[in-house]
C-alpha cells in the first residue's frame, strides 16, 4: 500500500485540502498574534460561532454557506472589531497574561452560550455538492475540499496584497513592528488593533463557511482546530501570513502521512514532532522575524 504512488499522492493531496482549513484558521490567529502579540484563546470559539451562524443561515434562511461568506465575513469583522475594542482591550489593560485570561473567559462564555441556546446536538448540513467528486487523476476529491484549498491560497494572496499594497496594510505593519512609533506618526493603535482582530475573525468566518459542508457543529467543535492552529502559527513563524499558510498546508500533509504510517491516533504526534524539530533547528519558525 505504501509503495503505491497513486495512494501516496492521494494521501498527500488530501492532506493539502485538510491543511487548507488549518491554514485559514491559523491565518486569522497569525494576524492577531503578529499585530497584537497576544494569544487568542477564544479563536476556536469564534470558529464555532461562525459555524453556527453559517448553519442557521442555511437551515433557516436557505443560504448556501458559500454565499453566506458574503454576509458572515463582514459581520464577523465587525464582531471581532467590537470585541477587541470594547471588551478585550479595556478589560486586559494591554497585559499579555490578562489578554490570555480575557480570551479564555470569552471562550467559556461563547461555548456555554452556544450550549444553552443551541444545545449539545451535533448539527450538520446536507448540500448537494458535498457529494460531488472531482477526479484529479490520482484520486477523487470532494468539491468542497477543492474550494477550500483554492480559497486558502486566494486569501493568502489577498492578505499579502493588503499588507504590502495598501495604506491600511502599512499601518498594520507599522503597529506590529513599533507601537510607540506608530502612535507618534498619528496612527490610532487601538483602531489598528481592533481592525487586525476583526480581520482575523473575518478569516475564521470564511474558514467556517468552507468547513461546514464537510463537517459538523457542536458547542465544543472549536477545540478540534484551535490546538492545530496554534501549532501552525508557531511553525510558520509567529505572525507570518505566508508562514501560516504554508505551515497549515504542511501540517495537513504531515498529519495525513503520519496518520497513514502510525495510525490516526498515534499519528497526531507527527505534527508535534515536526513542531519540536522546528523548535530545535529553527526556533523562529519558517518565516519568523518577518511581520507581514
Amino acid at each position: 500500500m505504501l509503495a503505491d504512488p497513486v495512494f501516496l499522492l492521494a494521501v498527500a493531496f488530501n492532506g493539502l485540502t485538510v491543511g487548507a482549513i488549518y491554514a485559514l484558521v491559523a491565518l486569522g490567529l497569525a494576524l492577531i498574534y503578529g499585530v497584537l502579540h497576544i494569544i487568542n484563546f477564544a479563536h476556536g470559539s469564534l470558529l464555532m460561532l461562525a459555524l453556527y451562524a453559517a448553519f442557521f443561515l442555511f437551515t433557516l434562511g436557505g443560504v448556501d454557506p458559500y454565499v453566506a461568506v458574503l454576509a458572515l465575513a463582514p459581520g464577523f469583522f465587525v464582531f471581532g472589531y467590537l470585541l477587541q475594542r470594547f471588551v478585550i482591550a479595556p478589560i486586559s489593560f494591554g497585559r499579555d497574561t490578562n489578554v490570555l485570561l480575557v480570551t479564555l473567559g470569552l471562550s467559556i462564555i461563547f461555548d456555554n452560550l452556544a450550549l444553552y441556546l443551541w444545545t449539545s446536538t451535533t448539527r450538520t448540513i446536507n448540500v448537494p455538492y458535498a457529494q460531488t467528486y472531482v477526479d484529479i487523476g490520482v484520486t477523487a476529491v470532494a468539491l468542497p475540499r477543492l474550494v477550500a484549498l483554492g480559497a486558502a491560497l486566494l486569501v493568502g494572496v489577498a492578505f499579502w496584497l493588503l499588507m504590502t499594497r495598501t495604506d491600511l496594510g502599512k499601518a498594520i505593519r507599522a503597529v506590529a513592528r513599533e507601537r510607540q512609533g506608530a502612535r507618534i506618526v498619528g496612527i490610532s493603535v487601538e483602531h489598528i488593533f481592533a481592525v487586525s482582530f476583526g480581520l482575523g475573525t473575518a478569516v475564521v468566518a470564511l474558514a467556517a463557511c468552507l468547513l461546514l459542508p464537510t463537517f459538523y457543529v457542536t458547542p465544543t467543535v472549536g477545540y478540534a482546530f484551535v490546538l492545530i492552529a496554534f501549532t501552525t502559527v508557531v511553525l510558520g513563524g509567529m505572525g507570518s501570513f505566508i508562514g501560516a499558510l504554508l505551515g497549515g498546508l504542511l501540517l495537513g500533509v504531515v498529519e495525513a502521512f503520519s496518520g497513514v504510517l502510525l495510525g490516526e491516533s498515534l499519528g497526531q504526534i507527527g505534527i508535534f514532532l515536526i513542531f519540536i524539530l522546528v523548535l530545535l533547528f529553527r526556533p523562529t519558525g519558517f518565516f519568523g522575524q518577518r511581520v507581514a
Partner: peptide
Amino acid sequence: KTPGVNLLAFGVLLLVILRFLP
C-alpha cells in the same frame, strides 16, 4: 438548573474580576 448557564456566568464574572482587579 440549565446546563451551561452557570459556566456562562462564571465566564462573565471572570471578566468582571479582570476588569476591576487587573
